[in-house]
Amino acid sequence: MDEQQNASFTLPGHFLPSDDPLLRYLNSTEEYLAYFYGPKRSHLSLPITLVYTLIFLVGVSGNMLVCLVILKHHNMRTPTNYYLFSLSVSDLLVLLLGMPLEVYEMWSNYPFLFGTWGCYFKTVLFETVCFASILSVTTVSVERYVAIIHPFQAKLKSTRRRALRILITLWIFSILFSIPNTSTHGIEVKYFPNGSLVPDSAMCTVVQPLWIYNCIIQVTSLLFYVLPMGVISVLYCLMGIKVSWMTSIYMFKHIP
């Protein structure tokens, strides 16, 4: 009878043989969770927290000053500074909302305490601000290219209203493109081999098939990393050629 009891345990849809290493963790919730998730607290939590604290203080103060200067002084509200304002806002969102959560998870990796909607918010926040920052930097590069290659056209078209429309569009696109990856995430819980729920096992992680997640990551990497990097590289090369050419002409005309 004892051999039959120890022969196997049944998970929903799983068969656990008697020599499975999970059998040793049936009476220890902490060890069982550590087997799947690793240690609850990172051994680098203290030094990383100190570094994050320094980044937080410098980042929040610097980006807040940028935003306040642009908002307070009317003459600073130029199209280029609007893009800088957008970058500062995205940085502040990460610093004020994302970084505290990252620090908390280093000290307590599980359970995730904010539920399914908290998991969605965490994922969509990081995705949106990352995409918005990349698109803002790319847009600034395009604006600089037009200003150097076509200065008269840039003077006519580069207005604050146009910059605001572009920024609103960029943020809307960033939110929309963050939804696919967010939809693959959710709350995952673990069960003991006897089918009972493991306490404090909730984790915010990918819950959809990995091939869907990998496809989304590949598409977003192409659209928001490879493509912008290529565009920025080409534009700055063209600007460098243009500036070098203009410098050569200037020096040729002024050399006695």
Results as ranks from 00 to 15, higher is better:
Met1Trp: 09
Ala7Cys: 11
Phe9Tyr: 10
Leu11Asp: 11
Gly13Tyr: 10
Pro17Trp: 13
Pro17Asp: 14
Ser18Val: 13
Asp19Trp: 14
Asp19Arg: 12
Pro21Asn: 14
Tyr25Ile: 10
Leu26Phe: 12
Leu26Val: 14
Thr29Arg: 12
Glu30His: 10
Glu30Trp: 05
Tyr32Gln: 07
Tyr32Ile: 05
Leu33Thr: 03
Tyr35Lys: 10
Phe36Gly: 06
Phe36Cys: 08
Phe36Thr: 09
Tyr37Phe: 10
His43Lys: 10
Pro47Phe: 00
Pro47Lys: 02
Thr49His: 01
Leu50Gly: 08
Val51Gln: 01
Tyr52Asp: 02
Ile55Glu: 06
Leu57Gln: 07
Gly59Thr: 04
Val60Asn: 02
Ser61Tyr: 04
Gly62Thr: 06
Gly62Ala: 06
Val69Asn: 03
Ile70His: 01
Ile70Met: 01
Lys72Met: 01
His73Leu: 02
Arg77Pro: 00
Pro79Phe: 02
Thr80Ala: 05
Leu87Gln: 04
Leu87Ala: 08
Val89Ala: 06
Ser90Lys: 01
Ser90Gly: 09
Leu92Gln: 07
Leu93Pro: 04
Leu93Lys: 04
Val94Asn: 01
Leu95Ile: 10
Gly98Ala: 06
Val103Tyr: 02
Glu105Met: 03
Phe112Leu: 04
Thr116His: 13
Cys119Val: 12
Tyr120Ser: 06
Thr123Asn: 09
Phe126Asp: 01
Glu127His: 14
Thr128Asn: 05
Phe131Cys: 07
Ala132Met: 11
Ala132Leu: 13
Ser133Arg: 08
Ile134Met: 13
Ile134His: 02
Leu135Tyr: 04
Leu135Gln: 09
Ser136Gln: 08
Val137Arg: 04
Val140Leu: 14
Glu143Phe: 10
Tyr145Leu: 11
Val146Ser: 05
Val146Trp: 06
Gln153Ala: 11
Ala154Pro: 03
Lys155Val: 08
Leu156Asp: 11
Leu156Thr: 12
Arg160Tyr: 11
Arg160Val: 13
Arg161Phe: 12
Ala163Asp: 08
Arg165Ile: 15
Arg165Asp: 12
Arg165Asn: 13
Arg165Gly: 12
Ile166Thr: 14
Leu170Ala: 10
Ser178Phe: 02
Ile179Thr: 11
Ile179Tyr: 11
Thr182Val: 10
Thr184Glu: 06
Thr184Gln: 08
His185Ile: 02
Ile187Pro: 03
Tyr191Thr: 08
Pro193Ser: 03
Asn194Asp: 09
Val198Ile: 04
Pro199Ile: 00
Pro199Glu: 02
Asp200Ile: 02
Ala202Ile: 00
Met203Cys: 00
Cys204His: 02
Thr205Tyr: 02
Trp211Cys: 00
Trp211Gln: 03
Ile212Ala: 00
Ile212Glu: 03
Ile212Met: 00
Tyr213Pro: 01
Asn214Cys: 00
Thr220Ile: 05
Leu223Glu: 07
Phe224Leu: 07
Phe224Asn: 03
Leu227Gln: 09
Gly230Ser: 13
Gly230Asp: 11
Val231Ile: 15
Val231Pro: 04
Ser233Arg: 14
Val234Ala: 14
Val234Pro: 07
Tyr236Pro: 09
Met239Phe: 14
Ile241Lys: 15
Ile241Gln: 15
Lys242Pro: 07
Val243His: 14
Ser244Phe: 15
Ser244Cys: 15
Met246Lys: 15
Ile249Gln: 15
His254Lys: 15
Ile255Gly: 11
Ile255Gln: 15
Pro256Cys: 13
